[in-house]
């Protein structure tokens, strides 16, 4: 983490120094970085190509029937039809997804986080094993896990009932790689062992060490892990559809068949919401870096 930002700084510094002598081309001829013009042509073209589908969704959601006129009818319909119960399945799906989010975040905070801290403090030899376990879900396709989740969930349903929140157990596994990385990066950057040693030698109890020393130091990593967990849960479709649970994504697919406009409206909102969520994660990460550097 810090190594990459240091090397980035090395790449930058000579460029700035070399570009000062005021040549027309800002970038020196030998540097690896592209010229300003090349950069903005590439980024401009990709930017346009990637924004077209998003703009198309917005255009689509503003259409009024097949007439070719535009209006906010479909947006208004979400609220007026709310009483009629047209989109009940969608609202229920969103509620279920929020419930699953809460339980999944709890799994990350109660099962994964303490295990990672424990391994870091007391069982450093298990660090490699823990990392391996947390990476596995990336290598097994969700659709393969689903084949195994179906028999497992026939047991889960007998114990907890077939409530939507039970999906969090399965989603928690999918989330592992994403939640593990920010916390691990944070753990690596903070000398947890030294800090807890110092706190212990000053007479703090383990509870104090955890609550007043370790957790505050891991704040940005934990927050990132929680946000990425929320994003993954809200975007999860495969497992929910096969375990016949109504979540945000499965509801979107259902609604899409009857009212594509509303499905598209919610999809745009979800994409923008996830974008902002991840933008915040990015800022959190760079804030953490700046503080350590200073």
């Amino acid at each position: 983490m810090s190594a990459s930002s240091v090397s980035a700084a090395e790449v930058r510094a000579p460029r700035l120094a070399a570009s000062r002598p005021g040549s027309a081309q800002k970038t020196p001829r030998y540097a690896a970085a592209p010229s300003r013009l090349t950069r903005w042509i590439i980024l401009g073209v990709t930017g346009v190509l990637f924004i077209i589908p998003i703009l198309a969704m917005i255009e689509f959601s503003l259409r009024v029937g097949q007439t070719g006129t535009y209006g906010f009818e479909h947006y208004a319909a979400i609220f007026t039809a709310g009483q009629a119960g047209t989109y009940d399945v969608l609202f229920q799906g969103i509620l279920n997804s929020i419930g699953i989010c809460i339980v999944t975040v709890a799994i990350v905070l109660v099962l994964l986080l303490p295990t990672m801290i424990l391994v870091e403090l007391k069982y450093p030899k298990l660090r490699g094993a823990l990392e391996f376990i947390c990476i596995i879900p990336i290598t097994i396709p969700s659709i393969v896990l689903v084949v195994g989740f179906i028999p497992v969930y026939s047991v889960v349903a007998r114990i907890f009932g077939s409530n939507a929140w039970t999906l969090a157990f399965a989603v928690g596994i999918i989330v592992l790689p994403y939640a593990y990385r920010p916390i691990a990066a944070n753990l690596a950057a903070v000398e947890v062992v030294t800090l807890s040693e110092a706190a212990r030698s000053l007479g703090a109890s383990w509870g104090h060490v955890l609550w007043r020393v370790i957790l505050p130091n891991l704040r940005s990593g934990i927050l990132s892990a929680c946000f990425i967990t929320i994003a993954v849960v809200l975007g999860e479709y495969t497992i929910a559809s096969f375990l016949s649970q109504n979540t945000f994504q499965t509801a979107l697919v259902l609604v899409q068949h009857t009212d594509p406009y509303v499905a598209v409206i919610f999809a745009v909102f979800a994409l923008v919401f996830a974008f902002i969520l991840l933008l915040v994660i990015g800022r959190l990460g760079s804030l953490g870096r700046n503080r350590r550097a200073a």
Binding site: I133, I136, I140, L145, P151, V152, L176
Partner: peptide, 8 residues
Amino acid sequence: FLAIPAVL
């Protein structure tokens, strides 16, 4: 939720 489903 990972080993058993994967093996199954």
